[in-house]
Computed example of a mutant assay.
Amino acid sequence: MSVYLLRRLIQAALVMLAMSVIVFIGVYAIGDPVEILISPDADQMERARAIAALGLDKPLWQQYLSFLGNALRGDLGRSFVFNEPALKLIGQRAPATLELAFAAMFLAILVGLPLGLYAGLRPDGVGAKAIMAGSILGFSLPTFWVGLMLIMVFAVQLGWLPSTGRGETVEILGLRWSFLTMDGLAHMAMPALNLALFKISLVIRLTRAGVRETMLMDFVKFARAKGLSPRRVIGVHVFKNILIPVVTVTGLELGSTIAFSVVTESVFAWPGMGKLIIDSINVLDRPVIVAYLMSIVLMFIIINLVVDLLYSVLDPRVRLESK
């Protein structure tokens, strides 16, 4: 296990290094934040001082080496707009995005697994066909349109839920969390559901396909021949085997949910990282953009590592140790 972890950590470091080059060049080679941040009425002396203060007067390779050296010390630069460390801004917005993403994935598993299991066990039933038709809608409907419809129905017409914002929060370890208050949960309900619809459809189809494939396996037929109850056959032999692909895809989808929650956060005015990155792109706040992208890469690496470790728990045939 230690050899495997060491190898994965080395791979993660190389991936982070490669991504830092790609992200830095991609972000810093496009556009000129000076044209946005500095008044058009400023003279050449003021522009020169501002460019030097932002560190944009150096060649690109020198800017990257300076960025890399600071990044090794945990400093990804200061925001051009807020004049605060970029990582501090990301850290302030990260709890909002993380709790929204985890809530969406929790809903996807809570709803998708039972529905997919039912659709796989009774594929010709009316209920199973209705579930699969609903999953197609979950894939097809645009996220922004669903969000607007949720606001129109549950906030405007029925008045059951608040339409925007994060609601009341509680501070834990210096971070603000809204899922610990009833008002926060009420504000989270619609954006979490909006973000979860696509994931629910994905889990349903994955679970159904896994059940249909596993039910034809010899070990399931042997378990039935031994006289085991249908509940035990499904709960022990079928369910445990379909969890492996579900865990794999769910883990990767968690990363994508965190990274691509921009639309949902914009529709519901949810103050997370997605809204921050949109605002930063509009003003070409390069340090914040780079810090956000590097944070997302690190999250994907950590999630992939956790998913790989879960393999050994779900399937003892998977060997993590090096030969």
Rank of each mutant, 00 (worst) to 15 (best):
M152S: 14
V156H: 13
I281W: 01
Y311T: 10
Y4Q: 06
Y311A: 05
L115T: 05
F222C: 00
L113W: 02
E321K: 13
R286Y: 12
V262T: 06
M16N: 09
R286L: 10
A108G: 12
I51R: 13
L284V: 04
A104M: 07
V238E: 10
L54I: 03
E321V: 08
F139Y: 15
R73W: 11
M182E: 10
F144I: 07
A101P: 04
L5A: 12
V81R: 15
I234C: 06
A94E: 08
I303P: 01
V23E: 10
R224D: 13
S39D: 15
S2W: 14
I30R: 13
G134P: 06
P162Y: 02
P191Q: 04
D57C: 01
M105R: 06
F80N: 04
L65I: 14
L37N: 09
S266Q: 14
S39H: 12
I289V: 11
A103S: 15
S312Y: 05
L195E: 09
W61E: 01
P123A: 11
Q92N: 12
Y64L: 03
P271T: 05
L60H: 00
S295R: 05
A18C: 13
R319Q: 11
L314D: 02
V263P: 09
G138A: 03
R49L: 12
V3T: 13
L68Y: 06
L113I: 15
I244F: 05
A94F: 15
E168Q: 12
N194D: 14
G127C: 06
K226Y: 02
R212D: 08
T207W: 07
L148D: 09
G120L: 01
L158S: 11
T257Y: 05
V153T: 09
A133S: 08
G272T: 11
S256P: 07
P162R: 04
K129T: 10
S66Q: 12
L320I: 02
Y64V: 05
V81Q: 14
A18I: 13
Y311N: 08
S163A: 15
G165N: 02
L197Q: 08
V111L: 13
A71D: 00
R93N: 09
T264N: 10
L305Q: 07
P95F: 03
I278S: 10
A12I: 13
K58D: 12
V233N: 08
L89D: 00
A155V: 06
V146H: 09
D279P: 09
R232T: 13
I30A: 08
E46N: 03
I281F: 15
A50M: 12
A108S: 13
E84V: 09
M182R: 14
A119G: 07
L72N: 01
L89E: 04
A13T: 13
A196H: 01
V236I: 14
P162W: 00
H237L: 09
E35V: 15
I234W: 01
R49N: 10
V23A: 03
S79H: 04
E253K: 10
L173M: 14
M105Y: 01
G272C: 12
T250F: 02
A223N: 05
G272Q: 05
I244T: 13
T143L: 02
S256Q: 14
Y118L: 14
M105Q: 15
A52Q: 05
I200D: 06
L68D: 04
D41F: 11
I25F: 11
F300C: 07
M149Q: 03
A155F: 04
G210H: 00
A196Q: 00
D315R: 05
V290K: 09
